[in-house]
Design a protein around this nucleic acid. Structure first.
Lengths: 366, 366
DNA sequence: GTCGTTGCTGGTAGCGCTGTCAACGTTCCT
DNA sequence: AGGAACGTTGACAGCGCTACCAGCAACGAC
């Protein structure tokens, strides 16, 4: 049947309209707002589209409507487990919606972020998800001038551009240190790597908690700008021990470092938790499985990504949330590595039992 | 100065052309093929664009030119460390090129993959990266009919659609088992989770190596469809031990499982490697840091992503590689966990030393 | 019966850019 | 000197879709 097609052989909206016996604009409406059509035309267009296998041309749609159905996401790293959980949440929430995700990596540089932001905004995204609250003034101005909803994720701060979802890294670190104090620890070291703003605020929280207790000493803090790794955790811990042999606990800025510390303790035959307590940050899956099981600060990364994308999509569709700033909180998950000193340090079968309670993290499966 | 702008206040190509005193089409050429312009016009357009802060409208470009500058990437999972390394390579290679990445998650479903493929192809991507060689017949047909370069990643097989980059999971598994045999192991178990096609081929490799040695027994194989985790590694290992108490080695389909096995051994006070040897797969960063350090099969994930994207971009630009199928190989990195039985099982300071040699994996930093 | 009002539909006119082709000036060859 | 060949430039006509507004029928209020 001699229907005319585009050179590339693709079916256009006009073909669908012709087959359905309606005007192109009516067919167009079917895909954007089916309720606006009478039931008769609606079903006619629907079956015509299905018969022809019509797929809309997004470039033409974007050009004509002056907006895209793209959600821009700016994150500082793809390597980091933390962000892959967040991303998974974002992708999960965007699936099924008509929006697609455009991801870019700022590599922990706010200047790079500014550049990418300029690029993104020029394409008129439907919405934007940006990491953190430490944008350059120019970025900040662009974000405020943008005519699309924006969600800042990973942490909460005083002055949201638009929406915000995260938790207080400062408070979380204070809580971790408080937990160690409760367990009777006093010489508590801090180990941190790749000191991005959020890790910095964890350090600030640690410092403030230590100062409140009158226990702060500068030499208890070991940090580096190097990207984090398990191996690095061991090395930084070795440093820390050299500075303070009487250390009785370590608060690690993330779980990889904590695992490195655990391995280094094993290597040096330092008993955990009897000699040294370990607390990590993020509560990755392996923390519950280690021997001894490792205490960590649980953060809701998957949920953060998912909620951010959901809020954003609702805002794009005109449903602004009542609560534009959402504190997802955190939880110090207490495990064997921070038990008090005089308890039995050798976890037996009950150790495996304690482990099993921790299996079903909401954020660790897909 | 009364330059006319678009309603949205954006600068268009026409404005740039006007300021530069050239026709719009000449300005357009400047952005796509600057060499075609005379030097005078080139600099005039360049400075005009800079002065106005011009950013091209990609939707208009895509519509007019009938092609996009988008590279579609289909991967089965975002959670998996393996894919985040590959992705990082892809993003790194695409940065600086004019192509942007459009990512979608098939969730290990080839039907979902088929659906996404249809969607992607309708937008005429500049190129496509797909995971593996197990597409549905429909997907396969679409890929073959696609008029853009395609790279299949993660493994190599007999019948590439176009380009292909990866390694043989079958051979890698055989090599791992051969290594264990060389170390004097005989009762070698297999632990696997989320049995996707590549894990399945690792199992096939294991089975064939065991059969070659006349050592294969079905009960030595423990697998599950559940997503992988460290905790799961411990549980599967416990299963395996119950079936075969005289086990002397475990080959794990990935490193998370291997770490879980290590922790379970520690919990049960099974000496590694004296009683049981452990070999993992992928060589994640922590393997070199564990106590004892863990043997693993190193795969070049970051490089795989990076090379795939580079090859693809070159092919888009008309430079087809001489070598359309690239085997990146693998390497059994031998560490303490698979040392022969009679060696000293208690790594001392030298253990930490051995660890340090393994720090600088090409794929573990960014 | 006239006048809104509502619900649905269609015509027109672009969105901002690039493919195509023609035309120009310059250089080089015969 | 004439013509071919090349490098450079511009005019024109869309790409496929949607915003905008107009039109039309059906209905109810006065």
């Amino acid at each position: 049947m001699g229907r005319k097609r585009t050179k590339s052989g693709k079916i256009r909206l006009a073909e669908v309209a012709e087959l359905a016996g309606v005007s192109p604009i009516t067919a167009s409406r079917f895909f954007r707002n089916p309720e606006a059509l009478s039931i008769g035309k609606r079903t006619r267009v629907e079956s015509a589209a299905k018969e022809l296998g019509y797929v809309p041309n997004l470039a033409a749609r974007a050009l004509a409507s002056q907006r895209t159905e793209v959600i821009g996401v700016l994150i500082p790293s793809l390597t980091n487990n933390v962000f892959s959980d967040v991303l998974r949440g974002i992708y999960d929430a965007s699936e099924g919606s008509r929006y697609s995700i455009q991801l870019s990596n700022t590599r922990y540089s706010i200047l790079q972020e500014e550049k990418l932001l300029r690029l993104f905004l020029a394409q008129k995204p439907a919405g934007l998800i940006v990491t953190g609250i430490d944008q350059t003034p120019e970025s900040r101005a662009m974000l405020e001038a943008a005519d699309c909803p924006i969600v800042q994720i990973m942490e909460i701060g005083p002055d949201p551009v638009d929406m915000m979802i995260g938790f207080s890294h400062y408070d979380a670190a204070r809580a971790a240190v408080a937990h160690l104090f409760e367990q009777g620890r006093r010489k508590i070291g801090f180990v941190g790597a790749r000191m991005d703003p959020r890790v910095q605020r964890r350090l600030d929280g640690y410092v403030s908690a230590m100062k409140d207790a009158g226990s702060f000493e500068q030499r208890l803090v070991v940090t580096t700008a190097t990207p984090t790794s398990v191996t690095l955790g061991g090395a930084l811990f070795a440093d820390l021990l050299a500075r303070e042999p009487n250390l009785d606990a370590v608060f690690c800025a993330n779980d990889d470092l904590a695992l490195g510390v655990l391995f280094e303790c094993r290597r040096r035959e330092i008993a955990v938790p009897d000699q040294i307590a370990i607390v990590g940050f993020n509560d990755l899956e392996f923390m519950a499985s280690a021997v001894p099981t490792l205490t960590s600060v649980r953060t809701n990364r998957y949920e953060m990504g998912r909620t951010a994308a959901t809020m954003l999509i609702e805002a794009i569709d005109g449903q602004r949330p009542e609560q534009p700033v959402l504190d997802l909180g955190f939880k110090v998950v207490e495990r064997q590595s921070s038990l008090p000193r005089h308890s039995d340090s050798r976890p037996a079968v009950s150790g495996a039992g304690a482990t099993n309670k921790m299996v079903a993290l909401p954020s660790s499966h897909d």
